[in-house]
């Protein structure tokens, strides 16, 4: 699968992870260009439907990012995110989709290096898994 370029949608919370992404830029940390970020105000805005929409439109992986537990700008939004992603990952597994394709990461706005590392890891892991191809799957 070496020549396969995964498409990954990343949901970024406005206050922490988006800032982490910006800092990775300031520090010129290099990571694969396969990730496309969508900003939300809080990770708790992301609902399973957005993740499924991404998969059926052709994403090979979805990453949801937020502030570390306790750091949420909206006090406790990210706790909802933990539960949502956990429950939803199980559902995805039942649907035969590899749980590695969905990932939740806490990235603070001081963690430019972590941002770059997570994007790299995620891309490599999905590259390893190969394409999901929900869009093209024939019945």
């Amino acid at each position: 699968m070496a020549d396969f370029e995964p498409k990954i949608i990343v949901f970024l919370c406005n206050w922490c992870s988006y800032g982490g992404g910006d800092l990775a830029g300031v520090n010129r940390e290099q990571y694969p260009s396969n990730v496309l970020g969508i900003k939300v105000m809080c990770s708790s805005r992301v609902s399973p439907e957005h993740i499924m929409e991404s998969f059926v439109d052709g994403a090979d992986g979805v990453l949801v990012t937020g502030c570390h537990p306790g750091d949420c700008h909206y006090i406790d939004g990210n706790y909802k995110t933990i539960r949502k992603i956990d429950m939803f990952t199980k559902i995805l597994e039942d649907f035969g989709i590899d749980p590695k394709r969905i990932r939740l990461e806490w990235i603070s706005s001081a963690e430019g290096n972590k941002y770059a590392r997570v994007m790299t890891e995620m891309t490599e892991e999905i590259r390893e898994l190969g394409p999901l191809n929900l869009k093209d799957e024939v019945e």
């Binding site: 990775a24 830029g25 260009s33």
Partner: peptide, 21 residues
Amino acid sequence: ANIRNQCSWVHSDDPEKATEK
């Protein structure tokens, strides 16, 4: 669209892919 901090600066080793993104 953040094509600097989250694109040109972090994909500076691959202009083609950076452009695509």
